[in-house]
């Protein structure tokens, strides 16, 4: 089914369009993609050596990446850098869509959290939009990369979605069509059972499941990119949004407003790309190699045969 405009907040590295929706612009390739996000700002990859790349994230509203627009906000973003150092990043006061920028000096995984709390009709709505941004070192392996890839959580964040890694995943690994990606919903670091977890693809297709007793939910990344062959781009990037929400019976007071229950909502966005199987063929590869092998082998054999002089008996007429 198609994902709708539901006001779900999520962090994206792609700016919302000025008309408040549509296909996001500003994507730049080259970033290690898995669960992270493509694109750096102008001082990012491909820039002059020695400059520290920066990352810009926008807050967007609506779980469908195709139509999600911008949303005003003033809350700072909690950043957990590659070395697990926490810092607070303030929103840029330029009057435009909410966005924050932070430096990524070291290769690794950077977690950014936007946290909002508000009481509405005696229900405390706790919203956490999380972005997991990766910086690789090009195709080179980073020392201790396996350790850097271990998913991390932060005790200051009330609720979050953690994406489980693929086997052997590195900073340059991508999510592809056909992959099954798994998430775990955590509240105060503990798994949440029966949370409603929704996955929305870049073209707005969505699926929802309930998290299991370990707070886990998995989705198959569908292929929703069907261009004409001449327009096919193997680096075509789509954004998915995963959201999880669940209520908790809990009374309290937030900034002077009493509440009787809490509604937790958390999101995580990521990028996915065409699978190798979408544009590469083993059958053709092996076929051409075997034809070349047989052709050249036969040619060499026949050439040699032709050069063998047949036995000719010489008889002398005495």
């Amino acid at each position: 089914m198609r994902g709708g405009g539901d006001g779900v907040l999520w962090l994206s590295d792609q700016a919302p369009r000025r008309d408040g929706g549509g296909r996001p612009g500003g994507a730049r390739g080259g970033m290690a993609g898995m669960g992270g996000m493509a694109g750096m700002d102008d001082s990012g990859m491909g820039g002059a050596p020695g400059r520290i790349p920066n990352k810009r994230l926008w807050l967007r509203s609506g779980s469908n990446p195709l139509t999600a627009g911008s949303v005003p906000a003033s809350e700072p973003v909690l950043l957990l850098d590659a070395q697990q150092q926490a810092s607070s990043i303030d929103v840029e006061a330029h009057g435009g869509p909410y966005n924050v920028t932070f430096p990524m000096p070291e290769p690794g995984v950077y977690n950014a959290y936007f946290v909002r709390r508000a009481v509405d009709q005696e229900t405390l709505a706790v919203t956490v939009a999380k972005a997991e941004v990766m910086r690789s070192a090009g195709h080179s392996k980073v020392e201790g990369e396996a350790q850097l890839m271990v998913p991390r959580t932060d005790s200051r964040v009330p609720v979050e979605i953690v994406r489980e890694r693929k086997d052997g995943e590195g900073l340059f690994t991508r999510i592809n069509y056909g992959d099954t990606i798994r998430f775990q919903v955590l509240r105060d670091g503990k798994p949440v059972q029966n949370a409603r977890v929704s996955f929305t693809s870049g073209q707005g297709w969505s699926n929802s499941v309930q998290s299991d007793e370990d707070g886990r939910a998995g989705f198959v990344v569908i292929r929703d990119y069907f261009p004409e062959w001449r327009e096919f781009d193997r680096r075509h990037r789509e954004t998915f949004v995963v959201s999880a929400s669940f209520p908790v019976d809990q009374a309290g007071e937030w900034q002077g407003s009493p509440y009787h229950s809490v509604r937790y909502t958390t999101t995580l966005a990521g990028a996915y790309y065409p699978a190798i199987e979408d544009y590469e063929s083993y059958a053709w590869g092996l076929g051409i190699a075997v034809v070349a092998l047989l052709f050249s082998g036969t040619a060499v054999y026949l050439y040699r045969r032709r050069r063998v002089r047949p036995y000719r008996e010489v008889s002398f007429d005495e």
Binding site: D233, R234, Y279, E280, S281, G285, L286, I288
Partner: peptide, 18 residues
């Protein structure tokens, strides 16, 4: 050991490679 069909240039080069 594949042929890359993502673009004409890739097809030519990977087929040549094989």
């Amino acid at each position: 050991w594949t042929i890359d069909f993502s673009s004409p240039g890739k097809i030519v080069l990977t087929a040549l490679g094989m």
